[in-house]
């Protein structure tokens, strides 16, 4: 019985590979887009004009306040009603990128706020332009604070990509769901699915921990 199931599982490896490729494609694409947009929004959130700050803040709150599953449904089912035709993959990318951008925006903004005003004043005093102040003085220091949570956010993004299986994209989780209909051993099937995510996410978790430790060592306060 178990033997037959194993054989059947091995038979579905092309499907599993396709699922893994889909998960990676979704995560990677939205990770890159989300990081770019998130950085841009993060800088605007601290340095833009008041209206822009308000709008970004409200949007971020909206995204943080609703489940990702609901966001996907909204994008996938409502954009077509507005006349924007899109397939499940595009909808998934839009939803994930939007989610990543919102969280990364907050992380970058927090990083920028953590840079002491003295640093900006020093840069002002030495006559650097606003662009150079940002580029040469503020962002490098902000990055050191932002990097560990940023990596942590990538882990969340990869995990959240599993939710797009709900609109029928054949990612790793969806493959598990399909296979379990044929091979009725949910423990085994989803242990393998979990292992697939684990090998991608765990190294990133370790990296985030390491970065955090390094940062604490570099900025370490004296413990009394």
């Amino acid at each position: 019985m178990i033997w037959q199931q194993l054989q059947s599982l091995i038979g579905s490896y092309p499907l599993a590979l396709r699922g893994l490729a889909m998960t990676i494609a979704l995560s990677l694409l939205s990770l890159i887009l989300g990081t770019l947009i998130g950085f841009f929004l993060g800088v605007l959130r601290t340095k833009g004009n008041r209206l822009i700050i308000r709008v970004i803040g409200a949007w971020v709150d909206l995204i943080r306040g609703t489940p990702f599953l609901v966001q996907i449904f909204l994008i996938f089912f409502i954009l077509p009603e507005l006349g924007i035709e899109l397939d499940a993959f595009t909808a998934g990318i839009i939803a994930l990128t939007n989610l990543a951008a919102c969280f990364i925006c907050e992380i970058v903004a927090a990083g920028i706020r953590s840079v002491p005003t003295g640093q900006v004043e020093a840069a002002l005093a030495s006559g650097l332009s606003q662009w150079h102040r940002m580029r040469q003085v503020v962002l490098p220091q902000a990055m050191r604070v932002a990097l560990p949570p940023l990596v942590g956010q990538y882990v969340l993004l990869i995990k959240d990509s599993s939710v797009v299986s709900a609109i029928g994209l054949t990612d790793l989780t969806r493959v598990g769901w399909l296979v379990v209909q044929r091979v009725p051993n949910g423990l085994l099937v989803f242990a393998i699915v979990g292992a697939g995510y684990f090998v991608v996410c765990y190294p990133l978790i370790l990296l985030a921990r390491r970065l955090e430790k390094n940062m604490n060592a570099a900025h370490g306060e004296v413990q009394l």
Binding site: V163, N185, G186, L187, G194, F198
Partner: peptide
């Protein structure tokens, strides 16, 4: 803790949903 943090909740949910009846 590490296993939970490195895998999606949805996979964990399906693990229990499809797996528990098996047990």
């Amino acid at each position: 803790i590490d296993v939970i943090r490195a895998t999606p909740l949805l996979a964990q949910l399906y693990f229990l949903y499809f797996g528990l009846p098996r047990l």
